[in-house]
Simulated scan of single mutants.
Amino acid sequence: MTAASAHFDEAEGALIVRGDWDAGSAPALPELAGRRVRVLDGAGITRLDTNGAWLLLSAVRPQATGPLPELRAFQPRHRAMIELVDRNWAATAATPALRREGVFEFAGRGALVLWGHLVGLLDFIGRLFLELAALAARPGRWRWLEFGAQVRDIFVGAIPIVAGMLFLLGVVFAYLLGSQAQQYGASIFVVDGLLLAILREVSPVIVAVLVAGRTGAAITAQIGTMKVTEEIDAITTLGLSPLAVLVVPRILALLIALPLLVFVGDIAGLAGGMLVTKAQLDISYAMFMDRMAEVLLLKTLLVGLGKAPVFAIFIGLIACRMGLSVTRDARSVGAHTTSTVVQSLVAIIILNAIFAIMFVKLEI
């Protein structure tokens, strides 16, 4: 291997280069500021790759445009390399101009992304349905241990944050309702408002949001990491279905755990409201419980609990699909995890609005 060297001949205006030219040959180039190179002499070049050719062209022609100096005494293969890099010089050196995106273009791009998510989700649901049908025909393939582990992680691990969050929301709702009810001497009706707000709307929605941010993101990150480390490929190689091993247990665990967490949230929210009504409105715990027993309707409790399985299915479908859609790099794992949380929150809000309209129409 011959070290690269170069010197500039002032009389001829020629840059004479020798040795092996590659990416590490930059220090061999002389200072050419203010000098015009008319000839590039490559008679002494022993080896030249695209990096070396780019270095030489950068030295003799700093700008991407303009005439190429005379190429003198180059071996045919070295000349071909120089000419190849020169042909692609302008394209690689060009900086794309900044372009402002219009409102309609932005909206259209967003619509295409949304359509892609919907089509992908429908395709995933179809494949999952076929997998469930195959599992129903062969019950021995159900992953019961994985299902139990997921229920434990989703339900038991989320109890503290769900109870704490709903307790504080119960405190806030009771305080706001109580401050208004006191003005009209209707303090006892705060219990009615708390029951409707906590059981019917607040608890199922807040619990679903917490589970989407905690469990949904974790599912996507876990499955995505398994795809990056080729563990999913290993599962397939063993003749197992990734849907049966990874997806079905997690969705079923969410289906079981989310209604239980909503019930825990109901109790915590009412406990927080009971504490505030005692301190602010002088409603004793016994009075609170008597009023709750008097006005609480079974349908109020069932409406909130009935939303939970629907939220759970959509959170599980979105989280698992996004995890399996991860490409083989860490950045994709982060992007898909973020997308899972965003899609899940949007789905929860849309589903809750649909439930509200449906219940009004059905007078429930």
Rank of each mutant, 00 (worst) to 15 (best):
Ala217Trp: 00
Leu195Asn: 10
Ile188Phe: 07
Leu199Met: 15
Thr220Val: 09
Thr225Leu: 07
Phe189Cys: 14
Gly185Lys: 13
Leu195Lys: 01
Val191Trp: 00
Ala208Gln: 04
Leu166Tyr: 00
Ile159Met: 15
Ala174Arg: 00
Val172Asp: 02
Gly178Asn: 04
Gly170Leu: 09
Thr215Pro: 07
Tyr184Thr: 14
Val191Met: 10
Ala208Phe: 02
Asp192Leu: 04
Ile198Lys: 04
Arg214Ser: 08
Ile206Trp: 03
Gly164Glu: 05
Ile188Trp: 07
Ile188His: 05
Leu196Lys: 13
Val205Ile: 14
Ser203Asp: 12
Pro160Glu: 09
Leu166Ile: 04
Ile159Cys: 15
Tyr175Ile: 08
Leu168Lys: 10
Val209Leu: 14
Asp192Val: 10
Ala218Gly: 11
Ile206Tyr: 02
Pro204Ala: 09
Gly216Glu: 04
Ser203Cys: 14
Ala186Cys: 11
Gly170Val: 09
Ser187Val: 10
Gly216Lys: 01
Gly193Trp: 02
Ala163Lys: 10
Gly164Lys: 07
Gly213Lys: 00
Val171Ser: 04
Gly170Glu: 11
Ala197Tyr: 00
Met165Ser: 15
Tyr175Ser: 12
Gly216Val: 03
Gln222Pro: 09
Gln222Asp: 14
Val207Asp: 12
Val162Phe: 03
Leu195His: 00
Thr225Arg: 14
Gly164Trp: 10
Leu169His: 01
Val171Met: 13
Gln183Pro: 07
Thr220Phe: 02
Gln222Trp: 01
Ala197Cys: 02
